[in-house]
Amino acid sequence: VESATQDHIRVTLIPGLNPQIAIPRNQLIRFGPVLEPTSIAFKIETLVSSTVPIVPFIEADRFSDVAILTSISVIPDSLELIGPRSSLDTIRSIKTALIHPEVRGLQISFPSEAGHNQSVSISPEKRNLSVEIDAPLDLSRLDHHTRCDRDQVKVRLVLSPSVEKTFSSLPVRFLNRPPGLEVGVDSKELTVTLAGPAEIIESVSDSDLAPFVDLRPFRGGGVYTATAEIPLIERVSIRGAQPRTFKITLTPRGRDSESNADTPVPLAPKTEP
Rank of each mutant, 00 (worst) to 15 (best):
A261M: 09
A198E: 03
S207Q: 12
D149N: 06
V48S: 15
L159M: 00
I75Y: 12
Y224Q: 06
V172C: 06
L170D: 05
S71G: 00
S205T: 10
G180Y: 09
H116R: 10
P56F: 00
N26K: 11
E132P: 13
I54T: 07
V74S: 00
P76Y: 01
S93T: 02
L28A: 15
R25D: 13
G180S: 10
F63H: 03
I72S: 00
D143G: 09
A241I: 00
P179E: 11
P101K: 03
L232C: 06
E189L: 03
S39K: 07
T225M: 14
V103Q: 11
V131G: 12
I99A: 15
P76K: 04
F57H: 08
F57G: 03
S93Q: 01
S205F: 10
T146N: 09
S64M: 00
V192W: 08
R239H: 04
L190A: 09
F167T: 10
R141T: 14
S73K: 00
L170P: 04
L47R: 13
L190S: 12
D138P: 00
T263G: 01
S112D: 06
N176C: 11
E36I: 15
S49P: 06
R253F: 02
I23F: 03
I14F: 01
T191N: 13
L88P: 00
E189S: 14
F167I: 10
P217N: 06
V172G: 08
P101C: 03
I91F: 06
L28T: 15
T96V: 07
L79G: 01
P178F: 05
V265M: 03
I23G: 00
L47S: 09
S203F: 06
I75E: 15
E36C: 10
P171C: 01
G222I: 08
T12G: 10
P84I: 01
P243L: 08
V236C: 10
D206N: 11
D149F: 14
A22F: 04
D256G: 01
D134I: 06
K165S: 02
S207W: 12
K247N: 08
T5E: 07
F212E: 06
R235N: 15
G196E: 04
V172L: 08
V66F: 08
Q20C: 15
S160E: 02
F31R: 03
I82T: 10
P171Y: 08
D214M: 07
S109W: 13
T70S: 11
E45Y: 03
K165P: 12
T46E: 11
V34R: 14
G105Q: 02
K270H: 04
E258D: 09
E36K: 11
D7I: 05
D77F: 12
S73H: 02
D186C: 02
D151C: 00
I133P: 11
P37Y: 04
E113T: 07
I54F: 07
